[in-house]
Design a protein around this nucleic acid. Structure first.
Lengths: 330, 330
DNA sequence: TTGTAGGCGTTATCAA
DNA sequence: TTGATAACGCCTACAA
């Protein structure tokens, strides 16, 4: 900066004013400075600016697993929306466990992200006594008792719609394939509740034999569940999967056992990840409005960065049930 | 930091020494300082440290599209390897075009990433006169004339192996579905060359009618290509797809037209993304060693950060041809 | 309209 | 083994 100032024959302060487009710099001086910047290849030092201002202009996005299709999808929307608002996004991987998610918060502050969007799957009790007002927006399904801004998925509503749809297509023995804990309030328990409610309304069986619980929510686990389901002799004719990833594994596992979809079994997923539309058969699924969620989450962090003490809010994403081949009638 | 120093009754410098695990601090003092840190909730200010040291400890990873399965896959390996070496990874989206990729480099320097791994698909002539020694590692397929460290895919070798395999399975009319420019040296032209070579060795047809060029390399484009291919009357019995994403779209498009895979047409892809194993039918594909590539790329940036002037190198990833249902014999 | 002084939090250097 | 000082590059506040 000093070099530029010398080259242009002005002070550092004038250079700063030009760089930041501040008023009060005469046109000829401004031009001299810009020329000097160009010639010297000067570039502002973000660290110095950050040190002074206390802001980095970076929003963190912590997701359980960057590899999962769903998160790539989400990330691209968050990046776009943040850019629109003049922020930059840094993606963090938290691992799908409470420790990793708590670490992500700590790391986010250490790295001085101005705020963090945390797609939490495991963290239900987050303790942050030291600095309770770090701008933190929860994205996901758990219950945080109103302590954080929270963009939620339409978990119950979505699964309810998917289950009801399968029933409407003629399914009578509808299983659910899910993972994680059915205790407490989280994605899994909420989706399970939507499934139960839809079956109850129609007087259809629900009970444990139709409940398949996975160790994790991977494609491989979905595939294994399909094998168990096919071998169970339960006469299952419909399956609600807790996520599309699991559903895609299911489709594969049912194919392994020679079961036709939708001929023998109808399947519905949740998320509408891109591969869902291209699977063979294409996958019926609950499609939350990801763009809406991303935009909302970014809006909330940005607002909270500006006003750390404003009251928190909870917002549920709108969704559509996208009906495709995997649940076709007849 | 001053607070901590006061609390522990030492100087800021001693606090710094304790925080950084430097030798030359007596045990009792160290303990006092750690206790003071704990009580005060002190956290180092990364910006200040960066300002002083000129290093952020962050490596950028610029990918064309965070949404593509392949890049999520890659990113998770890069993150793991970087963490092992004490670096943090920031993921950037460049858009699959030369402008976006050049911007990614500029942004990387503005944001003061210590180095950048650039998965370039469009950038063939990168000009950076101002600061030619920014640690930059190219990941991908283009030819950079030895100006950068470069981790390349086994493009020709891989496609050659896939094409030869289809021929060995009995295919006689093998098409290729690809995208982008066949001019110059890039991923697409390299893969095309591997395909031509394998066909030539076996005296099989190649020529333009069997070449399907896409506008982009999306699933949707792959699907559309399958429709064109099915409607072409060319009697195609094998297809080499330039990527798995395209191949998965192809499988979908062939299903749309009632063509059975592998019964009527055999298909091979490139990348071995996770969904490839779970597709119906599961996809035969060229599987470059992604972990190896990620590790190599990180190793190269880290080395170049330490020694900006060392000579550049080019490294080609090892690969395996993973044979699955989509190319089964008979 | 432009310039000067001081400080953001850290660490390298050198002195005690 | 510990501490004082200066400097990293920028920006706020104030003075000219």
């Amino acid at each position: 900066m000093e070099d530029v100032a010398r080259l242009a024959g002005v002070s550092k302060m004038t250079v700063s004013n030009v760089v930041n487009n501040r008023a009060g710099v005469s046109e000829p001086v401004r031009r001299r400075v810009l020329e000097a910047i160009r010639r010297s290849g000067y570039r502002v030092n973000v660290s110095a600016r950050t040190l002074k201002s206390g802001r980095t202009g970076v929003i963190g996005l912590a997701v359980p697993d960057v590899e999962a299709a769903y998160f790539g999808h989400l990330a691209s929307h968050v990046i776009a929306e943040a850019r629109r608002r003049g922020f930059h996004v840094a993606i963090e991987e938290s691992g799908a466990n409470a420790g990793g998610e708590a670490d992500a918060v700590t790391r986010s502050r250490t790295l001085q992200f101005d705020g963090l969007i945390l797609s939490a799957v495991a963290l239900d009790r987050l303790e942050e006594p030291a600095d309770a007002h770090y701008p933190l927006v929860m994205l996901g399904e758990q219950d945080f008792g109103g302590r954080f801004d929270h963009v939620a998925m339409p978990n119950e509503e979505g699964t309810h719609a998917a289950t009801a749809h399968l029933a409407d297509q003629g399914c009578r023995r509808i299983a659910i394939v899910t993972g994680g804990s059915l205790e407490g309030v989280n994605m899994v328990s909420r989706r399970y509740r939507g499934y139960r409610a839809a079956l109850a309304e129609r007087g259809l069986d629900a009970g444990p034999p139709l409940l398949f619980v996975l160790d994790d929510m991977s494609m491989e686990a979905g595939r294994a569940a399909a094998h168990r389901l096919a071998d169970s002799g339960l006469g299952v004719d419909g399956v609600v999967a807790v996520t599309d990833t699991v559903a895609l594994g299911l489709l594969r596992g049912l194919a392994d056992r020679g079961l036709r979809v939708p001929g023998d079994v109808r399947v519905a997923g949740f998320d509408d990840v891109p591969p869902a539309a291209y699977a063979v058969p294409s996958l019926t699924t609950v499609a939350p409005d990801h763009r809406w969620m991303a935009a909302k989450a970014v809006e909330l962090v940005v607002r909270r960065i500006a006003a750390p003490l404003r009251p928190t809010g909870r917002y549920v994403a709108p969704f559509q049930l996208v009906v495709r081949e995997s649940s076709a009638a007849g």
